[in-house]
Design a protein around this nucleic acid. Structure first.
Lengths: 264, 264
DNA sequence: CAGTGGTCTAGACCACGCT
DNA sequence: GCGTGGTCTAGACCACTGT
């Protein structure tokens, strides 16, 4: 009987002791990513605890992002997904590509190293008045007409990110840029702005992380215990903000952001 | 009786319906950050559910980072903490300050806008052989002697971040830099390297997010439902890596990272 | 069908914070 | 002392996945 490892009289709650043991067995490699861990029934016998307590242990490991549960199948060590490297340098590559006659490749496709046909894009375009946040980012008065464009990007690996990108309406009204049918636009935002005669000279990104909202978990297929990274991006032409992406939302289990700061 | 909002025969589990209602009341502002939400006993009566179900709803909101529970006191909408802006530009400021005779201020203090005396630093220095990861980051053979320095930074607001910063031992052996007693070093890493005759010309940062490990939750005082942002940083002099911070760990509820990409 | 995790109840006892 | 959340049990029934 291995239940000796659990001490019911310890100050540490039984469910945490059980979780500690499972965590150790996971991080030590005894259970590898994708492996199943013992069923709740097995834990009852092995650790000598009730089912509720066993479930509480699993819930803890789930919140830590260590395991996922699949109804009717079992509990598994969370598999590692392929990580997409999103580099700040991609904007430079986009700029350099503008008008060079190459086949279309947006930042998104180049980040993946995937071809044009392998991704899908859902989009919704709406005209809205500038919210206080948008007004500040775009340096326009509150209420200024804005073209809000919501995107969801998919690859063969499933949904990858959501974003909301906004242009001041006066920049794009009546141009092909305002037509959702033209998405995905070859060359991305920078090429799009270039057709309007606008040269982006600077991009700022503000990075945060938080737990996803329920609708984001559903839309992006995010398992329990996995946070999202959010990016607020502003593109500037000189000192003038020309685009603001208020909420780029990316599941943190499939992305890493890379930045370079030059000091010379 | 307000319990009409719960439909026990719905496909949606009761505890999720309860959580939905509480979430709505939180995001709508009915419960503001810092406010207490109804006790488990009150939920039993108000929603007509058992205590276990009420607790399950609270557990869900906790995992989402919306509420925190305090034993013996109650359940509260998670208060917002002051956000520290960590800009990539801080390295430029550090560089510009080297040797200018100003009072000591490291990146960390400038980020805060706080004074020298308001932060505390725990550090442990160890000599280790380069792990495969360190070897790659520092472009040295595996096993190369490394000075590993572990830090924990505190302000009056509590612990703020942990980091592990590594120098190739040959760069720093026998110099004041290798002495923990000299930390915190006025001017930070860049000034430290400058005393060795090394001019850092480039910094790369790799940003990720994940849920904290139990020891990190304890050391950094992280509530349930709050992820950590991790940064892997490399400082380069020309093409030569001179410092690698393998794991900068920052609770995501008190930081935001800012980056600028110049395209001209 | 058997085995798995998901939902829910009723109840007991404990630990903590406040008054 | 009283109200709060924390731990734990035994048991029932449901829903899903596999054979």
């Amino acid at each position: 009987m291995a239940r000796v490892i659990i001490d019911p009289r310890s100050d540490r709650p039984v469910y945490k002791q059980v979780a500690d043991d499972l965590r150790r067995r996971i991080t030590s490699g005894e259970f590898a990513p994708g492996d199943s861990i013992p069923s709740e029934k097995e834990m009852e016998g092995y650790y000598g605890v009730g089912r509720t307590t066993a479930r509480q242990s699993v819930a803890l490991l789930r919140a830590e992002g260590l395991v996922i549960t699949e109804h009717g199948r079992g509990t598994y060590v969370r598999p590692r997904l392929p990580v997409r490297r999103l580099s700040g340098e991609r904007y430079r590559a986009d700029r350099d590509q503008i008008g060079d006659g190459q086949p279309p490749a947006t930042s998104f496709t180049k980040d993946q190293g995937i071809g044009w046909s392998e991704y899908r894009l859902d989009r919704t375009f709406t005209e809205i008045p500038a919210t206080p946040e948008l007004a500040e980012l775009l340096a326009v008065p509150e209420g200024t007409p804005i073209l809000e464009r919501r995107f969801t990007f998919h690859t063969v690996d499933g949904p990858q990110q959501m974003s909301t990108s906004c242009y001041p309406l006066e920049l794009v009204a009546g141009t092909p840029v305002a037509d959702p049918a033209n998405e995905p636009w070859p060359g991305g935002n920078l090429a799009q702005l270039a057709t309007l005669g606008i040269t982006v000279t600077k991009v700022t990104e503000r990075v945060r992380a938080r737990m996803p909202m329920p609708d984001e978990m559903a839309a992006l297929d995010i398992p329990a215990g996995v946070p999202v990274i959010t990016v607020t991006r502003v593109m500037l032409a000189g000192e003038r903000p020309v685009e603001a992406a208020v909420d780029i939302v990316i599941p943190a289990d499939r992305v890493e952001l890379n930045y370079t700061i030059d000091l010379d």
